[in-house]
């Protein structure tokens, strides 16, 4: 079977369970983002895949081979560290050629591969530079090139872009995704930045407290979050209480939402609705009535904060559909039932 199979992996540090019985199948060539807040176990999981931590139980299978007992240096993988870990005493070329040199490749072979990789990362002619003389983005690329020198089966990156400034980070996200698609290499990136995950990943794996909360394509995660934690972690959302009234209708904040069905037997639940799905209009019987407390006009988008009782609802609109509201005005909030996701408790 091709790809990476993580089979019931658990890692305990003393009493603390960092990774709790995680199962995940990553098909060959997939770009996976492990996403979650710090301490959720994503880095530990990545390090176990790399062989830098030993699992307490479970197995890691790569292309049908159980690599759990293999030491890191025999796993045929490339890894980019958060600190980048470029070797300070070596030039750019020697850093990239390190893996080849360890394997005893000839000088010509090393040079050829270094030139190839430098072209790939858009830094041709940089081979003789000392790494200390590089900019942050250049160092980033060199670290990537070094990890790819041996065309590994698995490409692992631990918060690779966290040291870059916001603009460069966005550019590198795109570049990294394009590079991965060109090489078709199975890639796993650890990040806490959901935007980064949305940009790059085929598969986003949201983790919390050592477990996988949801593993799905980015848009599905966004549209259909499995629970309140995922919904809240991925993007901005409105989490609203829903209940079934005596007439069997589903109501939110006292207003019935026709067409929104609760799972059988559930009478109370949280509902997630993305701000861009919330419509504002004139107060009316079919809408939830609230009062505008703040309007943030960002030019590209307009965020409107509406208070309904003690609950705050955010609505986002584009300038074209700009709602005609001002602070203090009464508005009617409409929630399209098809955009409401009833969350599991």
């Amino acid at each position: 079977m091709s790809g990476l199979d993580i089979n019931a992996i658990t890692k305990a540090f003393g009493n603390f369970i960092a990774v709790d019985n995680v199962r995940l199948n990553v098909p060959h060539g997939t770009f996976v983002c492990l996403l979650g807040p710090s301490g959720c176990g994503k880095t530990t999981l990545l390090r176990m895949i790399a062989g830098l931590e030993e699992p307490t139980s479970g197995a890691i299978v790569l292309d049908g081979e159980d690599i759990t007992p293999l030491p890191t240096h025999k796993r045929n993988l490339g890894m980019v560290f958060q600190s980048l870990a470029l070797f300070p005493h070596l030039s750019v070329g020697d850093n990239i050629a390190y893996a080849l040199r360890i394997r005893g490749a000839s000088k010509e072979e090393q040079k050829k591969r270094v030139d190839e990789l430098l072209t790939l990362i858009h830094l041709p002619g940089f081979a003789d530079r000392p790494v200390a003389k590089l900019s942050g983005g250049q160092r980033q690329r060199v670290a990537i090139a070094r990890a790819l020198a041996l065309s590994p089966k698995l490409f692992l990156l631990d918060e690779p872009l966290s040291a870059l400034d916001a603009k460069l980070r966005e550019a590198m996200q795109v570049e990294l995704r394009q590079l991965q698609q060109r090489l078709g290499i199975t890639t796993i990136v650890v990040t806490h930045d959901q935007r980064e995950a949305m940009t790059m990943a085929d598969l986003v794996v949201v983790m919390g407290h050592g477990r996988i909360l949801q593993a799905a394509p980015p848009i599905e995660i966004y549209r259909k979050p499995a629970d309140a934690f995922v919904a809240d972690f991925i993007g901005i959302t409105n989490l609203l209480p829903a209940e079934v009234d005596s007439a069997g209708r589903t109501t939110i904040l006292g207003t019935a939402i026709p067409g929104l069905a609760m799972p059988a037997g559930v009478t109370r639940a949280s509902v997630s609705i993305r701000p861009e799905d919330v419509h504002l209009g004139q107060p009316g019987s079919r809408a939830i009535t609230g009062q505008v407390t703040f309007v943030r006009d960002l030019g590209g988008t307009i965020e409107t904060f509406v208070e309904v009782g003690s609950t705050s609802i955010i609505a986002v609109a584009t300038p074209r559909e700009r709602p005609n509201v001002s602070v203090g005005a009464k508005v009617g909030v409409t929630l399209p039932p098809e955009s409401c996701v009833v969350l599991g408790s």
Binding site: T72, F81, Y98, I102, A147
Partner: peptide, 9 residues
């Protein structure tokens, strides 16, 4: 660790 991932014992 980087050296180890690059194949060095």
């Amino acid at each position: 660790e980087a050296a180890r991932t690059l194949g060095a014992s």
